[in-house]
Computed example of a mutant assay.
Amino acid sequence: MYFNKDNFIENYEKVAGQLDQVAEIAKQLQQKAYKKIFLLGSGGAYTKYVDLRPLLFKKLNVPFLITSPEELVSQYLGELNEDTLIIAGTKTGTTKELLSALTAVRKNCEKVTVLGFVGDDDTEIDHLNLLDYRISSVDTDVHLILFGWFILNYAGISTAKMKAELLGLGTKIGQTLTDLQEQAKAVVYAMELERLQMWVASGHAWGEVCCYCNYILEEIQWIQAQGIHASEFFHGPFELVADDFQVNVVLNTDSNRQQDLRVAEFVKNHTSAYTIVDMQDFALEDLSSEVKEFVEPYVLNHYFDLLLRIYVERTGKSAQTRRYYRKMEY
Rank of each mutant, 00 (worst) to 15 (best):
H127D: 00
F117E: 01
I228D: 10
G174P: 03
D120T: 06
G236P: 04
D122Q: 14
Y133K: 12
K185R: 15
A184F: 08
V209F: 05
I216S: 10
D179N: 11
E239N: 06
D141H: 05
H143F: 03
V118I: 12
I145W: 04
S231I: 00
V138Y: 04
G168T: 05
N129F: 01
D179K: 08
V209S: 14
G227C: 14
H235L: 10
N153H: 15
K185L: 12
K161E: 12
N153T: 09
A242T: 15
T171A: 15
G207P: 06
Y212D: 13
C213W: 04
Q226E: 15
H143Y: 07
Y154F: 15
E165M: 07
D120S: 12
Q183M: 12
Y154K: 06
Q221N: 08
G227V: 04
M198T: 13
Q181M: 11
A225H: 04
H204T: 13
A184N: 02
G168K: 03
A184S: 10
H127E: 02
E219V: 09
L166I: 09
L193M: 11
Y215T: 01
C211I: 04
L128H: 00
V138H: 05
V118Q: 03
E218I: 08
L167C: 06
L144C: 06
E218F: 14
E239Q: 05
A205M: 14
